[in-house]
Design a protein around this nucleic acid. Structure first.
Length: 466
RNA sequence: GACCCCAUCGUCUAGAGGUUAGGACUCCACUCUUUCAAGGUGGUAACACGGGUUCGAAUCCCGUUGGGGUCGCCA
């Protein structure tokens, strides 16, 4: 039987980083086994589900290049089927109507809590006759869960886990308004979609026991379960909004490459010996659930940044220019001209070596395409003292004869000048950098000179001359 | 509180009875060098604690402590 996995987020907010990892693991597992990866939108909470959140999930997955196979399934489109299953359970005596009001249940919980007893539904309508039903109360449908024994789970990540059935109460299958609850919907949908492997967050582990009982009640084959440990914030606490970078879109805005985020997320909880840099092709080849750890992990932005820098350096220049062009245009408040894009393309090798993310890359590239005169930052200003400016004039003069205008030729020419003046190279290089880039930090100065081209470079030097 | 899960450098992790406990990020030196990065070399840094089992435990068992998850007519 072929493997079918699914990612089943509820569209009540952005696609967060933990969800992204769940999606990645499901995707990898399916790819590794030559199976299929499905997306199901769990939108049965009509009040909290939003179109924006659904779009955010699609966008996030698409950006991460984890697009699902086939069309996504919307859980709300399947309520009739969910209700039919509940009715079947009811007909077979495996479910029953419960006439408890919300207040009554709240009271039940409060009492249990006060007495220090386990907080759960006491099954008071389980065997009660329907004729006892109070007037005008719409009942919920509850699952008649087994009272004795235990439910065993062979979890692909967590191993064998056992829970006494006495710990599990009779869950609500259909709300008083007749709509199905999550617990019913997941089981029906996972079954109907023929999901073979349910890979999801650890927070669903206890749900797996209740769901197992439902599968049994319906005599459906059980899927395999794999519960992934949760991701925590840098301080070890639960990932929450105060950690800031929790939505996938935020990582995109911070200038991370999807492949870097994927590699980082992959290593968070999964390992393959000492391997750190793992291409997606390799990940597909190597990924399996037995190498997933059982303990939760913390987000480490430093490591993500380092990984991103690595992938940035490996990325073809054309793609990088395409990614940073909008950012540069925003800074300059104007569209880039084709010749500027060509220039940036030539500049990329030196720039990408130095950037940790796309925002840094864009920032460091701006000077190349600014129009003269190039604004100087404070340090550059300081470097361009009277002596330096005088020298720049001479350099410009001397360089105007240079042909060809190549990195090698420029290096030779400038070193020659330094020697002739008996000056240290730094004495020339820093003022050159300041005049050419407006900054004290940049790629190699010969490279900058060459990339800029003879006429623009000389013009910038003349701008700085006294 | 009840139930369940987890526990190796600050962080992510390798390790599946016998290792100088390895790698990566971070940090610190040194190196390269026209700046800044990247790169190279080296360094600091861990088996939570207590009992067992064993000739021998990071590895197996029990307990303690700590962390996490779940206990909705949310998903």
């Amino acid at each position: 039987m072929s493997v079918i996995t699914r990612f089943a987020p509820s569209p009540t907010g952005y696609l967060h980083i933990g969800g992204a990892r769940t999606a990645l693991f499901n995707w990898l597992y399916a790819r590794h086994h030559g199976g299929s990866f499905q997306l199901r939108i769990e939108d049965t909470d009509r009040l909290r589900s939003t179109k924006e959140a659904i779009d955010a999930i699609f966008d996030g997955l698409h950006w991460l290049e984890l697009d699902p196979d086939g069309e996504p399934v919307y859980q709300t489109s399947r309520v009739d089927r969910h209700v039919a299953v509940a009715d079947e359970l009811l007909a077979n005596g495996l479910a029953y109507h419960c006439y408890c009001s919300a207040e009554e249940l709240a009271e039940m919980r409060a009492l249990a809590k006060r007495e220090g007893k386990p907080v759960r539904y006491d099954g008071r309508w389980r065997d009660r006759d329907r004729s006892d039903a109070p007037e005008g109360v719409k009942p919920t449908v509850r699952f008649k869960a087994p009272l004795d024994g235990a439910t065993l789970l062979h979890d692909l990540v967590q191993g064998d886990v056992k829970v006494e059935n006495a710990q599990l109460d009779d869950m609500v299958l259909l709300r008083a308004d007749g709509t199905p609850t999550y617990m019913l919907s997941v089981v029906v949908d996972d079954h109907d979609m023929e999901i073979t492997h349910v890979i999801r967050g650890d927070d669903h582990l206890t749900n797996a026991f209740r769901q197992t009982q439902l599968y049994r009640a319906m005599s459906w084959p059980l899927p395999q379960f794999g519960h992934l440990p949760l991701i925590h914030g840098p301080d070890g606490s639960k990932l929450s909004k105060r950690h800031g970078a929790i939505g996938v879109a935020a990582y995109r805005e911070m200038g991370f490459l999807p492949e870097a985020l994927r590699n980082y997320l992959l290593r968070l909880g999964w390992s393959h010996g000492d391997d750190e840099i793992i291409s997606t092709a390799r990940a597909i080849e190597w990924f399996d659930l037995d190498a997933v750890g059982r303990s939760s992990a913390r987000i480490d932005m430093q490591k993500l940044g380092n990984l991103n820098g690595h992938y940035l350096r490996e990325t073809e220049s054309v793609r990088l220019v395409g990614l940073i062009a909008p950012k540069i245009e925003a800074v300059l408040d104007q569209k880039l001209r084709p010749e500027h894009e060509k220039l940036l393309l030539r500049a990329m090798p030196g720039l990408k070596e130095r950037a940790k993310d796309l925002n840094e890359l864009a920032e460091s590239a701006v000077f190349y395409v600014r129009s003269r005169p190039i604004p100087l930052n404070q340090k550059a200003e300081k470097l361009l003292n009277a002596e330096a400016r005088a020298r720049l004039a001479e350099i410009a003069e001397s360089l105007s004869e240079l042909d060809p205008w190549t990195e090698e030729a420029l290096e030779a020419a400038i070193q020659e000048l330094a020697e002739a003046w008996g000056a240290k190279l730094g004495k020339l290089a820093q003022p050159l950098r300041a005049a050419l880039t407006g900054s004290n930090v940049s790629p190699g100065i010969y490279e900058v000179l060459a990339v800029l081209g003879k006429s623009e470079a000389l013009d910038r030097l003349r701008d700085a001359a006294p």
